Computed example of a mutant assay.
Amino acid sequence: MSRKNKIALVIMISLGVFIFWREAKETNFQQVQHGLAHLQWTWLGVAVLLMLFSFVAEALVLKKLIEKPGEPHQPAWNFLRVPPIQALFNAITPFSSGGQPAQLVALIQVGYEGGRASSVLLMKFIIYQLMVLINFVLTMLVGFKQVMTNFSGLAILIAGGFALHVITIGALLMIMFYYRFTKGVTQGFFNLLSCVIHSDKVERWRNQAMQKIETFHEESLQLKREKKKVIQASLLTLVQLIAYYLIPYFVLLALNVPHADLITVFCMHVMIVMITSIFPIPGGTGGAEYSFKTLFATFIPGQTALILGMLLWRLITFYLGMLLGIVAMGIRPRRIFKRPIK
């Protein structure tokens, strides 16, 4: 990890500590002790296991997409270490922009050629975004009316997150199915940009964008011929997301919260993910905590239980991934390819 990333990590942890301190400074400490003393650790353990399972499912998606017949099988650790590394770098970079490059480096370390690895990661990304969108559309039919009625301000943020996902998926699908048109639009955009910004940077950006479009299109053609592989990866991603979205429900059970409805809590968590996606702050810090407090205040009686629930949820879904990512970076993979595999 570079010095810049280490500084970002320290800043993110410090910011998280500050947010929880600010939220908890007016909370009765004895009530917090009482809440922890009566915590149902079994349900909390289930929440942690669901988070770990989501990492395993994501590793299986990557394995399914990148492995080809006839190649030596990678050790399990070579794939298991990738999701936590992604979680770490997503957490310390704006708009989670560092996750993709970090995964790419992790795959190159085990012997995959950079072009192939980046193309597979792009395909994994589009499958993930599609499954997020499908989950959101289905759960919005159940829970969005309640949010619109009670939390109109958050409803606008949720709609913004939804729009961002649609635009992202739309751009990637354009590359897959309207390759020449997408290249033409991209060239036109950079031609206009070069009229405004006279710099070598524009040409470098243009070359990078065209190369990414080219590599993604080539890999998408390959994977469109392997529909079974894509379907299996999509189903695994769906399972991964369901496990992740269920975590707050078991946190509420651990806090002995009455009347916690599984479907409604599931829907609320989907919407929180949508909200945090539009915040440029690494990890959606601030926005995630505010969204949790606003949405789950209807379930959790009392300020103390709400703050404790927010802390436990954030530790499991955010800081656990950062910790595992640090561990994963410290344990080197076993390279079984003598030279890069294209």
Rank of each mutant, 00 (worst) to 15 (best):
K64T: 15
L65K: 03
L65W: 03
I66V: 05
I66G: 09
K68I: 06
G70H: 11
E71P: 02
E71V: 05
P72F: 13
Q74K: 13
P75V: 00
A76H: 05
A76G: 01
W77L: 09
W77C: 11
R81G: 05
R81K: 14
V82N: 13
V82G: 05
P84E: 09
I85D: 11
A87V: 09
A87D: 05
L88N: 12
F89V: 05
A91P: 02
A91T: 13
A91L: 13
A91I: 04
P94M: 00
P94C: 02
P94W: 07
P94K: 09
F95H: 04
S97F: 00
G98S: 08
Q103S: 05
L104G: 02
L104K: 04
L104Q: 10
A106T: 03
I108N: 00
I108M: 13
V110H: 07
G111E: 05
G111C: 06
Y112P: 04
Y112T: 07
E113H: 14
R116Y: 11
A117E: 03
A117R: 09
A117W: 09
A117P: 00
A117Q: 07
S118M: 15
S118R: 01
S119Q: 04
V120Y: 06
L121W: 08
L122Q: 03
M123N: 12
M123C: 10
K124V: 00
Y128A: 03
Q129R: 11
L130V: 14
M131L: 09
V132D: 01
L133V: 04
L133I: 09
L133F: 15
I134C: 05
I134N: 04
I134H: 01
N135Q: 10
L138C: 14
T139C: 15
T139D: 01
M140R: 09
L141N: 03
L141F: 14
G143T: 11
G143K: 10
F144N: 02
K145C: 00
Q146N: 04
Q146R: 10
V147C: 09
V147R: 08
M148D: 03
T149S: 13
T149K: 11
F151G: 02
F151N: 12
I156Q: 09
L157G: 02
I158Y: 13
A159N: 02
G160E: 01
G160L: 12
G161K: 09
G161S: 02
F162R: 02
F162N: 07
A163E: 03
L164F: 06
T168F: 14
T168Q: 14
T168K: 15
G170M: 07
A171E: 07
L172D: 11
I175V: 15
M176Y: 03
F177M: 10
F177I: 00
Y178M: 06
Y179I: 01
F181G: 06
F181S: 07
F181A: 10
T182H: 08
T182R: 10
K183P: 03
